[in-house]
């Protein structure tokens, strides 16, 4: 089976994100006030697996071993059968 996965990775709550703060300030210069602003990274991938559980376990392993840094990041995996 083929599965389509979308992995969203962001900093854990309360971690300093100077890039997001800078973007938020630049928005302010344009007159857009925001109460909060976060930046996240998204990985979109397709993979073969025998079941959705196996696919999810493999994507989770990818996050733990490379895509995310578990010291500073949270991540969210959305996965669906794609053919």
């Amino acid at each position: 089976m083929q599965y389509h996965a979308e992995v969203t990775i962001g900093l854990k709550n309360g971690m300093l994100d100077p890039e997001a703060t800078t973007v938020q300030k630049a928005l302010e210069h344009l007159g857009f006030t925001t109460k909060s602003l976060q930046m996240q990274k998204r990985f979109i991938l397709d993979l073969d697996a025998t079941s959705i559980d196996e696919a999810r376990a493999r994507v989770n392993d990818m996050c733990m071993r490379l895509l995310a840094n578990p010291v500073i990041h949270n991540y969210d995996i959305v996965i669906e059968e794609s053919g």
Partner: peptide, 11 residues
């Protein structure tokens, strides 16, 4: 080594 190295406080 433990921990992480993040973007400088002033980026």
């Amino acid at each position: 080594l433990p921990g992480a190295l993040m973007t400088n406080r002033y980026p």
